[in-house]
Design a protein around this nucleic acid. Sequence first.
DNA 1: AAAATAATTCAACGATCGTCGAAATAAGCC
DNA 2: GGCTTATTTCGACGATCGTTGAATTATTTT
Lengths: 117, 117
Amino acid sequence: MEKSDAVAALAALAQDNRLDVFRLLVRAGPEGMPAGEIATALEIAPNTLTFHFDRLRGAGLVTVRRDGRSMIYAARFETMNALLAYLTENCCEGAPEACAPAVCKPARSKRAKVSAS
Amino acid sequence: MEKSDAVAALAALAQDNRLDVFRLLVRAGPEGMPAGEIATALEIAPNTLTFHFDRLRGAGLVTVRRDGRSMIYAARFETMNALLAYLTENCCEGAPEACAPAVCKPARSKRAKVSAS
DNA sequence: AAAATAATTCAACGATCGTCGAAATAAGCC
DNA sequence: GGCTTATTTCGACGATCGTTGAATTATTTT
């Protein structure tokens, strides 16, 4: 992961609503969650949510697909792991054996009911 | 670590110059580095650097002490580890056994020459 | 005390951020 | 076709961001 990618991912997560959205998507697992459901769960206006999705998507932290009239957003664990790897890598330069790499995996393989925070 | 602390730390790291500063301080180890040395290493104006130090310090990622007319800044590994723990924790809810926690340690115990970038 | 060095403070600036309201687009339902 | 639902687009707004130049404070040196 490049430094600019890391900055983008950090910036994407460095905001209350977006961090909530991402955490919710992580808990929702790889199957993701429709935008409307996220909006009601976190009490964020739909248009504001779109704005945040754009930023998360720009940072590669989220994917979208259409399902009927719903947009299903899902966390990209690959990017999150790359970010964690980048951050730990920086801390361990010169002494890699002292550091434990971080791994981010979905909480559940099957979609599950998730409450807001 | 609280969510607001995590957002603060993420925001502090989500900027090119600040990420560079923090990485440099991590490599410098617990003994830290004088502000002027950082300024020349990264080619950042001293007043601009002060601005970024304030933000890093506000997020608890950095400490300062005075040494003569120099200000010595040092990375706070404790906070960085708390951030990494917070981020991985979010990814592992419901399946903690699937996740490896991240640890951030100083690269060297003794102060060493460090180049920019 | 005067001069030099190291860092901070302050006001200003354009740029980006996060939110809102209103309108537009997209897809399913009658 | 019209009607409803789901989401996005657009323009606007105040707020914060990152940088700069000039002035200031703190400390050491002579």
